[in-house]
Simulated scan of single mutants.
Amino acid sequence: MTQLTEIAQTYDETEERTELRRQVARLAASYGREWFTDRARAGEKSTELWMEIAKAGYLGINVEEQYGGGGGGIGDIAAVCEELAAAGCPLLLMVVSPAICGTVIGRFGTSAQKQRWLPGICDGTGTMAFAITEPDAGTNTHAITTSATRDGDDYVLRGQKIWISGVDEATNVLVVARMKDSATGRLKPVLFVVPTDAPGFTAQPIGMEIVSPEKQFQVFLDDVRLGADAVVGSEDGGLLQLFAGLNPERIMAAAFALGLARHALGRAVAYAKDRAVFGQPIGAHQAIAHPLAESHMEIEMARLMNQKAAALCDAGLDERAGEAANIAKYAAAEAACHAVDRAVQTHGGAGISSEHGIAGLLVASRASRIAPVSREMVLNYVAMHSLGLPKSY
């Protein structure tokens, strides 16, 4: 192995992942942005693309092979998510079902639970949503009030969740509830898999400005009764089990934002090459070229950090992965917001027309600064954990 090869493998992806990206990009390109937005505006779903991804083996690529997955890691599923978004078909449930839920169940579930839920996550027939956020508990997960109490051998869940993606497409939801510790009396987080057709489980859609087939919901849990086999991991697993899904969530959110940024930048560059004013393409002017060059650099830097975060996560280095995942998510969200804004500006008045479909990306890119963790909380995290500054909240 030459020194150049060693350097390339340190800072770039493997040939296998590069090929994975090519194949996913090729598949997604056969659908494209127009297909995606047409489905959204018609009130239809992107099920056709979802199932084709599953059939090709990409949907569960991070899940163990014995459960129908590809045996890869978070870096692989993040690559799939990014390429879909770069082709104009961002699938938010990629962040939730295989990455968060698949990771948590794969790491903490029993053999029976893995066999019960992971194959469906992989083949697309058992998509799983994730429910942690509540109306009065967003960033502060310690403040959630959804409760789980024992009733004989069963558990009874009461509470509500908000901003839950894709409940109408999910078979189950991984719900974060709180139980009282019998030894200490303190409340502890416990994870439950709740079927969406369970008695007492209801969901209401939330109106959104984002153009997407995937919807957001408020979920109500009114005395939802579950058996003991609904608990994922240990009742006493605490935050370790919960945070096992949050590092992948941030990495996937970064991948989602990076794909969005690449799509917007690609559209802007193509327009800047084609649109001519005063006898030459507008891309020849530094007022157009320099902002687009800045976006390219921002995307490349964020992608490198996300690759680092994924590598640390796949290596089981949760604490180091936490810092890298938060930074990657922050950087990718900034890159997405800048790229979309610059794409609109590059198109001029055409940038806010329905014909070009660029302005519709503004809300989606802006959301990447808010969810799944706000840019301010990432800054708090870095200030406290990376720099050792006093806690500010």
Rank of each mutant, 00 (worst) to 15 (best):
Leu191Ser: 04
Ala268Met: 11
Leu226Trp: 01
Gly237Lys: 01
Ile358Ser: 01
Ser234Thr: 06
Lys161Asn: 06
Pro213Cys: 04
Arg262Trp: 03
Ala56Val: 06
Gly70Thr: 07
Asp136Asn: 14
Ile162Trp: 03
Ala228Pro: 05
Thr14Val: 08
Gln241Tyr: 11
Thr346His: 00
Arg116Met: 08
Asp12Gln: 14
Tyr155Ser: 07
Ala42Pro: 13
Arg41Cys: 11
Val193Gly: 10
Gly32Trp: 01
Lys188Arg: 15
Leu187Cys: 08
Ser30Pro: 04
Gly106Lys: 08
Ala56Tyr: 04
Asp236Val: 05
Gln113Thr: 12
Gly138Asp: 12
Ser165Pro: 09
Pro189Ile: 15
Val95Ile: 12
Ile299Ser: 01
Ala42Glu: 15
Ala112Lys: 08
Met208His: 13
Gly266Lys: 00
Gln345Lys: 15
Leu362Pro: 11
Pro281Met: 02
Gly357Gln: 12
Phe108Gly: 06
Ile288Ser: 09
Ser165Trp: 06
Glu294Cys: 10
Glu15Ala: 09
Asn380Gln: 15
Arg375Met: 08
Cys89Lys: 00
Cys122Trp: 03
Ile61Val: 13
Arg21Asn: 08
Asp222Trp: 06
Leu389Gln: 10
Arg267Val: 08
Ile100Arg: 00
Gly283Cys: 13
Lys45Thr: 14
Gln23Cys: 12
Asp197Met: 03
Ile121Asp: 07
Leu312Trp: 00
Asp12Gly: 14
Glu82Val: 01
Thr10Trp: 06
Gly70Asp: 14
Pro291Glu: 10
Lys180Gln: 11
Val231Tyr: 00
Leu92Ile: 14
Ala325His: 10
Gly102Thr: 02
Ile288Gln: 04
Met305Gln: 15
Gly57Ala: 05
Arg375Lys: 07
His290Thr: 12
Val193Gln: 11
Phe201Asn: 00
